[in-house]
Design a protein around this nucleic acid. Structure first.
Length: 268
DNA sequence: AGATATTCCTGGAGGC
DNA sequence: TGCCTCCAGGAATATC
């Protein structure tokens, strides 16, 4: 499933196709993903030049020279297909550039979203207004401040996009394992040293995943390529019952309705 | 306010 | 083999 590193990789891949190009044609193949698309989406995008691509949390942003930003979230199953030979089921949006290249946003489960937002209003756009800092930028001091007084389990607090914006289930599990912090620990009770370890772990696990995605991207030249996924081996995620390097066994339990994976021997 | 539950959606896995 | 149920997940929304 696409998390921050996959979105970052996707944005970099789309940049190669889109940067500086003019959008020649747009086809919305269904009127909604998570939300309804603006009725004038095609009109506003067609003929616009792509001014730049960015990522915010797990959102990808495509800025145009007309003051609009196309904001996509890949949800559970979203991916961009580059120069597809033919359209598939679940290709919800098609973009064609002035060079004749094609991009298809494919999302079978439709947990993703697609919005066209005025660029200058992005910060106040409701999905963005309450977002916390980027996990790659956050410092231990900032995280400590944001966790202060919170009694909820650290696992759930790290998934809360208002505290830190961009972490998903996989990388929260992996970062807590690396920092040797138990996922049930009350967020506000974690000491400064351990928070430093946690922030370092968050930075490291994301940086490694982005680097792995980057290497995938380097080789990417397929005419019917897909962007958004790369293989990565995890130390605890989806490894219930498998051995940990310490000799213990990875366990799974449910927190806030979703799976947490951890090593009871390493994490306290 | 903070914590918790529910909803959305579909493909894939597993059971019988 | 086919049909069934269950499960995965992020974010918005509702409820306590």
């Amino acid at each position: 499933m696409p998390e921050l590193p996959e979105v970052e990789t996707t944005v970099r891949g789309l940049e190669r196709v889109l940067h500086g190009r003019r959008i020649a044609r747009v086809e919305a193949r269904r009127p909604d993903l998570r939300r309804a698309l603006p009725h004038d989406l095609g009109q506003r995008l067609t003929g616009a030049r792509v001014a730049g691509l960015r990522r915010r949390a797990k959102y990808g942003l495509i800025d145009t020279d007309r003051g609009d930003t196309l904001v996509f979230h890949l949800g559970m199953s979203g991916r961009w297909r580059i120069d597809p030979t033919e359209l598939e089921k679940h290709d919800h949006l098609l973009i064609e550039t002035d060079e004749g290249r094609r991009l298809a946003l494919n999302d079978p489960r439709r947990f993703g979203s697609l919005d066209l937002v005025r660029t200058v209003t992005l910060e106040n756009w409701p999905p963005f207004a309450a977002l916390g800092p980027e996990p790659l930028d956050i410092t231990a001091a900032e995280l400590k401040r944001r966790l202060a007084g919170r009694s909820a389990p650290i696992k759930l607090l790290l998934l809360d996009q208002r505290i830190v914006a961009g972490l998903g289930n996989i990388y929260v599990c992996e970062a807590l394992f690396r920092a040797r912090i138990h996922p049930k620990r009350a967020g506000g009770s974690i000491g400064t040293e351990r928070l430093k370890r946690l922030v370092e772990a968050v930075h490291a696990v994301l940086a490694e995943a982005i680097a792995a995605g980057g290497s995938t991207l380097r080789d990417f030249a397929a005419p019917d390529g897909e962007l958004g996924y790369f293989s990565k081996k995890f130390l605890v995620y989806d490894r219930d019952g498998e051995p940990c390097a310490c000799g213990g066994v990875v366990k799974r339990f449910v927190q806030g309705g979703r799976s947490t994976f951890y090593c009871p021997r390493c994490q306290h």
